[in-house]
Structure formats: structure tokens, C-alpha cells
């Protein structure tokens, strides 16, 4: 789940350069969908193709099942379903695969700063979270990264993670596999992302490869999804996830 299954089948680069990443855009604001569509067209027309749009939970699930995209840009707050917005879409698309045979990846988009919203979609299976004020360039990078199976953390999400795992208060994992705390390295990576560093800057700062940075971020995402830490479960319970 943390690693793409087949490195050679990576979309958007290498041999896949000629096949753009197929994206479905789920947001209840038509103006926002139009804006993202035109921005992505101007920024990365040959790398990203928007194959479908949906304004609510039911049509989103239908479009995703019909189009089998690589990536779904998913608004956290959506009408329909059981009232849990993006979480409902994620639940309705469990085990769906893209046409490349990869799992469909979800990237959450939100205007919300509320931790419980973000934690909820991440724990429901989204591979990343970015705010809607993100620039087109950064969004393109985020989509590509998510399509490759990596995790995308905004500075804000990194801040949440540091807070939620108590890492900012100095709690660190004894062994890397511990689910309820971050390892020292993961904490460093999260701190740099919170400081606004790009992955390549993080890699340079810590003298590690970009691939290693991505591995650390994916590992944090896994902990975020599986941990039973009190703060995380409380947030998740607030959204009736447990």
C-alpha cells in the first residue's frame, strides 16, 4: 500500500510519458471545478487529463467506477451519501482499480483547517491532503506524486501529524514500526515539510535521496491511517469512522 506495485507502470513519467494521468475531479462547486480544469490544462495538458467530474457523493462513485481513473481529486465536504462527504466516496470506491491495474489514489482537497476533517479522509484512505489555495504547479506535482503511489503532505498536514503524534512535544518511537509515534527521522521530515520545504529540499537538507523522503512520508501516512493514538481516534470518532 505504501509502494507502487510496478515501478515500470508508473504513469506520467518514463515509459508512461505518453499516457497522461487520468483524473476525476469531485467538488460540489462548479466554479472551483472549472478553475482547476483550466489551470491544469494550462499547466500540464499533456501530463494530466481530466476524464470526469462529479458534484456529489453518488455521482462521484458512479463516475469513478465508470472511468477507473488513476487519481481522484476529492473535496472533503460533499453533499449526498451519509453526510460524511469525501469519506463516503472513499468508502464507496474500496478496492477499485485504475485502467493500469493500480489502486485508484485519492488526493483530498479542502478549504478546511479542521483537523478532524483532514484526519478523517486520510484515515479513510486518501493518499494526501492539500488546501484549495495550492498553485497549479504544486497541484500538478501532487497529482503526479499521488499517482505514483506516494503520499502528499501539505505543510499544514505535517503540522497536524507532529501535533497528533506528540512529536512536537518530544515523543518519539523506540522502533520505526511503532504505530503510535513517529521515528526521529520521520519527525525530521515532517518538520521540514511543515517549514515549507519541497521533497527535494528535504532530501538535500537531510543528505538522503528523494526516494527515501517519499518512503518516510508514506510510512507516516501509514501510521496516520492505522494508529490507534488517542487524538487520532478521537478525531476519527467525531466523524463516525470507528
Amino acid at each position: 500500500m505504501t509502494q507502487p506495485r510496478a515501478q515500470s507502470a508508473r504513469p506520467g513519467e518514463g515509459s508512461g510519458r505518453h499516457t497522461p494521468i487520468r483524473v476525476v475531479l469531485v467538488d460540489d462547486h462548479r466554479m472551483f471545478r472549472t478553475g482547476v480544469r483550466s489551470e491544469l490544462a494550462a499547466e500540464a495538458a499533456e501530463r494530466i487529463e481530466i476524464v470526469g467530474e462529479a458534484p456529489d457523493v453518488e455521482s462521484a462513485i458512479a463516475v469513478i467506477k465508470a472511468e477507473q481513473p488513476d487519481v481522484v481529486l476529492l473535496d472533503v465536504h460533499l453533499p449526498g451519501g451519509t453526510g460524511q462527504g469525501g469519506v463516503d466516496v472513499l468508502r464507496g470506491c474500496v478496492a477499485q482499480e485504475s485502467r493500469r491495474g493500480q489502486p485508484i489514489r485519492f488526493l483530498a482537497l479542502s478549504v478546511s483547517d479542521a483537523a478532524e476533517d483532514v484526519i478523517a479522509v486520510i484515515r479513510a484512505g486518501a493518499r494526501g491532503y492539500v488546501t484549495k489555495t495550492i498553485t497549479a504547479t504544486d497541484l500538478t506535482t501532487a497529482v503526479r506524486r499521488v499517482a505514483e503511489g506516494d503520499a502528499v503532505f501539505s505543510p499544514r498536514l505535517a503540522g497536524f501529524v507532529l501535533d497528533a503524534f506528540g512529536a512536537a512535544a518530544g515523543e518519539l518511537a523506540e522502533v520505526d514500526e511503532e504505530l503510535d509515534r513517529l521515528s526521529a527521522r520521520e519527525r525530521e521530515v515532517m518538520r521540514l515539510i511543515a517549514r515549507g520545504y519541497q521533497y527535494k529540499e528535504v532530501a538535500k537538507e537531510l543528505f538522503i535521496s528523494i526516494k527515501t523522503v517519499e518512503t518516510h512520508v508514506s510510512s507516516v501516512l501509514r501510521k496516520l491511517q492505522l494508529s490507534s493514538r488517542h487524538e487520532l481516534t478521537t478525531w476519527a470518532m467525531g466523524r463516525k469512522l470507528i
Partner: peptide
């Protein structure tokens, strides 16, 4: 963008 990160911890 200008990025600011403030970590307020016990240390």
C-alpha cells in the same frame, strides 16, 4: 510563498 513553522514544545 512565505512559509512559517512554529513548534512550541516542552523543550
Amino acid at each position: 510563498p512565505v512559509s512559517a513553522y512554529v513548534e512550541i514544545g516542552p523543550a
